[in-house]
Design a binder for these strands. Structure first.
Ligand SMILES: [Zn+2]
Ligand SMILES: [Zn+2]
Ligand SMILES: [Zn+2]
Ligand SMILES: [Zn+2]
Lengths: 172, 172
DNA sequence: GACTAATTGCGACTTTGTCGCACTTCCGGC
DNA sequence: GCCGGAAGTGCGACAAAGTCGCAATTAGTC
């Protein structure tokens, strides 16, 4: 993997710039994150670490993730609308918003320059200095609408390739 | 209070339409919600109920709130970007989005027809049938930017009038 | 290599949310 | 108004998610 090195580099320079230490725990946290799917929670990172045989304590992961966000290695999103905090990898990825399908559970990543522009206008109008934003639209995706596939009519949304790939299906 | 009756009415017709029962617990849940601030979590509703001396069990509140959402009495939002589910009252309120100030913690409610239009376009483009959406922009509000007020430079954001009024300050 | 403050591991703890089940209440029919 | 049965509630035990203080360890500096 190539992106791995990138994240590590980013972590290091971030920590340095903040006078924090580059430690084993933090490095392992990054490694664990690599093994996570498209969208995941902190517990998933912890689980991934354990699955990979990395010995890091839960608390360490919980302490590291916010740093990874600050470093830009992770991004906090709420793609699935669950009540839990969710993250996605942030390196080498443009900002995007999410269309969440209520039927199949997949989340489609989209972006629109016009939209971003409109948001900027809105902020300006209110004298608000934007730092970042999140847009999530819930509804039904093209596939599910056309009924082209046996949709998950009952039970939790089926974790198909695109949306929630690797990780365990979101619990609760 | 006048809105109170409205919510009760809404609750009743919703339950009827779904073949569910209009029960004490559900009525009390609505009553408790009335006592909540602009944005709140289920636990806040529970707390409000207790504070009001309404005897309802936690579990009942947890079971009722999702119904209130379906009934349109509540709306699920994530205004403050916390990891917890948040709600706001939904009756007689237009859809709006949130500008969340990272400094003072207030959340400013805004809406923009242009934005909504743009979102519709985006969805159409992807063959996506939108049901609802949520936009939250984080940044710094006009007041805090002008430094006109002693901003909460340390500690949790000060719960000032607009944003998180009545309820307890968000814990954690 | 020694020093010192930052970080980790750990486990106990809190908070948030869920569940099964016995008891109660609602509601439609009489 | 009263009955019967299903829906809903209270309850407490439980599970999951996240936090905290502290002693032991370790990264960075000299
Ligand atoms: Zn995404
Ligand atoms: Zn779909
Ligand atoms: Zn909107
Ligand atoms: Zn502000």
């Amino acid at each position: 993997m190539k992106g791995s090195g990138e994240a590590a580099k980013r972590l290091e320079s971030f920590l340095r710039s903040r006078g924090l230490r580059l430690t084993r725990g933090r490095r392992l946290a990054v490694e664990a994150v690599e093994a996570c799917g498209a969208h995941f929670g902190i517990e998933d990172v912890d689980a991934a670490a354990r699955a990979k045989g990395l010995r890091v304590h839960r608390a360490t992961i919980y302490r590291a993730v916010p740093l990874l966000v600050e470093a830009g290695i992770l991004r906090k999103v709420s793609a699935s609308g669950g009540d839990r905090g969710e993250y996605e990898k942030g390196l080498g990825r443009e900002h995007h918003d999410h269309l969440l399908c209520l039927d199949c559970g997949r989340s489609i990543e989209v972006s629109s320059a016009a939209m971003e522009r409109e948001q900027a206008r809105l902020c300006a109008q209110h004298g608000f200095l934007a730092v970042d934003h999140q847009l999530r639209i819930r509804g039904y995706c093209a596939v599910c609408r056309s009924g082209g596939r046996p949709r998950a009519t009952s039970g939790p949304p089926a974790p198909i390739a695109t949306g929630a790939p690797a990780g365990r299906p979101r619990r609760r």
